[in-house]
Amino acid sequence: METVKKIWTSVMNGTQKCSMVLVLVLTINSCSKSDSDPVIDDPEVEAPNITAIEPTSGMAGAEVTFTGTNFGSTASANTVTFNGVTATVNSASATQLIAVVPANATTGVVAVTVNGQKGQGPSFTVLPSGNAYDCSKNEITENTVWEDIDPGNAIDYIITCAISVKGNALLTIEPGVIIAFEGEESGIFASEGGGIKAIGTVT
């Protein structure tokens, strides 16, 4: 009888071992990857390509249009910098961005970063904002003289609007005065009997 018990115990132990091996094999098979499962790779992200900026110079606060490819389709998807200083992006599409020149920007290259990919563009010249002409005075109706207000500065007046000299007034621009015009509509015009006597330099 004792011999029979030993044989039965041996058989049971062997059965348990076989069961454990069987469960382990099933577990491994259920976790293994099928050859038919699809393989998903992250798509390659191309760096932004800046082909042009307009204008190429301006004061802090001016809007600059970036033209190119591979831009983010939303403003928040793009990081625009002016010589390393981050700018605010007002609008965005895959081919065009409009950004604002930061207050503390300096002259240097512009760049756009999307999804960690950075593309550099041409250099942007930051003009001094202290000598910006007050466009609320865009009509000159009395005789006016523009002098060299800052001999140590390359630009004395930065014009971002259309200025009209009228009513028989005369605008005299003294020697040494350097004027820069920013924007398609900027300029100085004589009308209604007004006159301009320009001895300075226009850039």
Rank of each mutant, 00 (worst) to 15 (best):
T3H: 08
V4H: 03
V4W: 02
K5I: 07
K5N: 11
I7V: 10
T9K: 00
V11E: 00
M12T: 12
G14W: 00
Q16S: 00
K17Q: 00
M20I: 03
M20V: 00
L22R: 06
V25H: 01
T27D: 04
I28P: 01
C31Q: 05
S32A: 14
S32P: 02
S34I: 04
D35H: 10
S36K: 14
I40N: 08
D42C: 02
P43N: 08
P43I: 12
V45W: 02
E46Q: 10
T51Q: 14
A52H: 07
T56Q: 12
T56W: 04
G58K: 11
A60I: 05
A62R: 08
A62W: 01
E63R: 13
F66D: 06
F66H: 06
F66Y: 15
N70L: 09
G72V: 11
G72D: 07
S76R: 15
N78M: 09
N78H: 13
V80G: 13
T81P: 03
A87M: 06
A87T: 02
A87Y: 05
N90V: 15
N90G: 07
A92I: 11
S93T: 15
A94F: 11
Q96M: 14
L97Y: 09
I98N: 12
I98M: 11
A99Y: 08
A103H: 11
V109K: 15
T113M: 12
Q117R: 15
K118C: 10
G119F: 05
Q120G: 08
Q120V: 12
Q120K: 14
S123C: 09
S123Q: 15
T125K: 13
P128G: 10
P128L: 07
P128W: 12
S129Q: 12
G130K: 12
A132H: 07
D134S: 14
C135H: 01
S136P: 06
K137C: 00
E139V: 09
I140P: 00
W146I: 05
W146Q: 09
E147P: 00
I149V: 14
G152P: 06
I155R: 04
I158R: 01
T160V: 05
A162V: 02
I163R: 03
S164D: 08
K166I: 09
N168D: 13
L170I: 15
L171F: 02
I173S: 06
P175F: 03
G176T: 10
G176K: 07
I178T: 15
I178W: 12
I178D: 08
A180M: 09
A180S: 11
F181Q: 05
E182R: 14
E182T: 12
E182I: 15
G183K: 03
E184N: 01
E185I: 05
E185W: 04
F189G: 00
F189M: 04
A190H: 00
E192K: 13
G194S: 01
G194W: 01
G195F: 03
I196N: 04
K197Q: 08
A198P: 00
T201R: 11
T203C: 08
